[in-house]
Amino acid sequence: MSSSLDGLDEGRLDALLTGATPQPFGTFAQRLPDPAEPGPGVDRVLVACRDFTGLLDAGVPMLTFLNQPPWRRFDLPTGHWPMLSAPAELARVLDKAVS
């Protein structure tokens, strides 16, 4: 099983596959030329699951800004679908992020 599916039992995987819709291709092709800064007072939070933490910890150059302030990083040791594989842990992280 792919590590992005870590934590999904057969029932949750079936629910995911049944309810999933394809991601629009434009989201892969579109690139913003100069992402706008959100402005002062806007919190920057990253909830990183197992696959993404590996990329962040490996020092992938295009992601290094996510390991630096003003970003606050919260890691979850699960696959890409924490709302299904670790809902209680995700809720705790989101609560901590806004507290």
Rank of each mutant, 00 (worst) to 15 (best):
M83A: 14
K96N: 10
S4W: 04
F28L: 13
F65D: 15
D9G: 03
P40T: 13
A58H: 00
D57E: 11
G7Y: 00
L46R: 07
Q68Y: 03
D43M: 10
P61G: 03
L13I: 00
L63H: 01
E89M: 06
P82A: 07
W71Y: 02
V47W: 05
E37S: 14
R92F: 08
P77R: 11
P77A: 13
W71V: 02
V60W: 02
A86T: 05
E10P: 03
P24S: 10
G19W: 09
T18H: 09
Q23G: 13
T21D: 14
P22W: 15
D14A: 09
M62T: 11
P61S: 04
V60P: 03
F28I: 12
R92E: 11
A97Q: 09
G11N: 06
A58E: 00
M83P: 13
A58Q: 00
L90G: 07
T64Q: 07
R44P: 06
H80T: 05
A86H: 06
L84E: 10
S3P: 05
C49E: 04
G54L: 01
P24I: 09
G26S: 14
Q30I: 15
C49K: 00
A91Q: 10
M83Q: 15
L94Q: 04
C49G: 01
S4M: 05
D51M: 09
Q68A: 04
L56S: 01
T78H: 10
W71M: 03
P38C: 11
A20N: 13
D75Y: 14
S2Q: 06
F74A: 06
T53I: 06
S3D: 08
D95G: 11
F74Q: 07
T53A: 08
P82Y: 07
S2M: 08
R31H: 15
V98F: 13
A91L: 11
T18Y: 10
T53Y: 05
D6Y: 04
T27R: 11
L5N: 01
A29R: 12
A88R: 08
F65A: 15
D75Q: 14
L55T: 05
L17A: 11
G7H: 00
P70W: 08
G7F: 00
S4K: 04
R92P: 08
P24H: 09
D57K: 07
A91P: 10
L66W: 06
K96H: 10
R44Y: 06
G26E: 15
R44L: 07
D43N: 09
R31W: 14
G7A: 00
W71F: 03
P35V: 13
L8V: 02
D95Q: 13
P33Y: 10
L16T: 03
A97G: 09
L90V: 06
L90R: 04
V93M: 11
S85T: 07
F74V: 05
L84H: 08
A29C: 14
